[in-house]
Design a protein around this nucleic acid. Structure first.
Ligand SMILES: [Mn+2]
Ligand SMILES: [Mn+2]
Ligand SMILES: [Mn+2]
Ligand SMILES: [Mn+2]
Lengths: 217, 217
DNA sequence: ATAAATTTTTAGTCTTCCCTAAAAATATTT
DNA sequence: AAATATTTTTAGGGAAGACTAAAAATTTAT
């Protein structure tokens, strides 16, 4: 039995270390979870005790195979609920994260499998992030940040790296959405800005925006 | 801010006292919540402190207007989620209560309003219980237990008083469902059993079953 | 009207998850 | 290689919500 709080820690370690593979620092988790480092140390010990995490004092923490699978199952739930909220209840993509943070902790295997079917087994959530299947497997679409794409080439907007409300609302305001075909037409070295072209318009975006937009390659 | 545990106590008091109007005993709540009486006393004090309950030592507890509305909002969520699970995810009516017990605590006014619309503003849940609207108002369909209906008369099965898994599975096995037209054709005084007739069959039911089936009048 | 039984409350703990402050270990400068 | 700065852990608590055991109040039986 994994508690709500434990699930949140597992998710944090998973996201901070590359799928929980890399070692993650106490402070990094504290920042992510919005707790103090001492609280994190307590919880890490508990996770290690339960064999969900590998932990050596002062040396950071990573996930065991069980921990990794548990984290993925929480992420699966989070992303399926986000998809439900957007596709079925007509929420906008910037509104769903906080609600999914609550829904991801509902315990019922059958519920989540039925939800998956109801949504027709989506492979990606409203922010373009992959949804693990019930065994924890998923495939990430190959994509590159606009920062790493050569001027003149184009691709479909596949996902956003930053899923914060502020960034998503910026994209809404500028009518940029997942699925849009985007061509990178110019790069301005002075302020590292890019000019991009979509079906409907041409616009300039800052480096900060460019690095958060991922196009199919 | 009302905690998950507080919500459960408010619901218990609401259900045990007539909409929280009547005074409810500590032991009754303890049984409903599956906790010890001493734990109940602690919580009742907290609810009174927050002006959600009226409480006089040794004299039982009832709900304030705020407490009543809060309870109704939790019940609204519970019944909407049950409706979602049955109507959209194809759960059977005996499987949904435990999951709804979790979902009823998700906090988002917007979520529940959108869910309500998505379900096309249902007035009753899968067990025939009325769903309060966002202001806490609802209308109960006039109905009577088979126990109180005269032999020879008939009505539509509107709701079940006992929503336990065991009873609902009994009804599934015997192919009795909400919406069925039922005629009471005989009463046997010896064992207080009833013979009822539906579109598809005639069967005998015990007093225990009869008192839990409510027909429209 | 007492005595006995039952219900309810109080007193004292426990667990979970969080905190602050201080100590210990590790990393970075000089 | 020290000295300094930073990170991490330990020690000691707090709030919420549950528990047991004992005391107090109320109800029921005699
Ligand atoms: Mn999210
Ligand atoms: Mn997402
Ligand atoms: Mn229910
Ligand atoms: Mn119900």
């Amino acid at each position: 039995m994994v508690t709500l709080s434990e699930e949140n820690y597992l998710k944090a370690i998973y996201h901070l270390g590359n799928q929980g593979d890399n070692t993650v620092s106490t402070n990094a988790i504290a920042e992510q979870i919005d707790a103090k480092a001492s609280s994190v140390t307590d919880m890490i010990k508990k996770l290690a005790e339960k064999e969900l995490a590998n932990y050596i004092k002062y040396q950071g923490v990573s996930l065991t195979e069980t921990g990794r699978l548990t984290a993925r199952s929480v992420i699966r739930k989070h992303r399926l609920w986000e998809t439900f909220l957007v596709n079925k209840l007509n929420f906008s993509w910037h509104e769903v994260h906080d609600i999914a943070e609550q829904l991801e902790h509902i315990k019922s295997e059958k519920l989540i499998d039925k939800l998956d079917d109801f949504l027709e087994n989506p492979t990606h959530d409203p922010h373009g992030d992959p949804i693990p299947d019930k065994h924890g497997n998923y495939t990430k679409i190959k994509s590159k940040s606009i920062l790493d794409i050569s001027t003149g080439s184009q691709g479909v907007l596949i996902s956003v790296k930053d899923s914060s409300k502020a960034f998503l609302k910026y994209l809404n305001k500028n009518e940029l959405a997942l699925g849009d075909m985007i061509r990178v037409v110019d790069f301005e070295p002075f302020d590292e800005s890019f000019t991009i072209e979509t079906k409907s318009k041409t616009m300039t975006i800052s480096k900060n925006v460019a690095e958060n937009l991922y196009l199919s390659v």
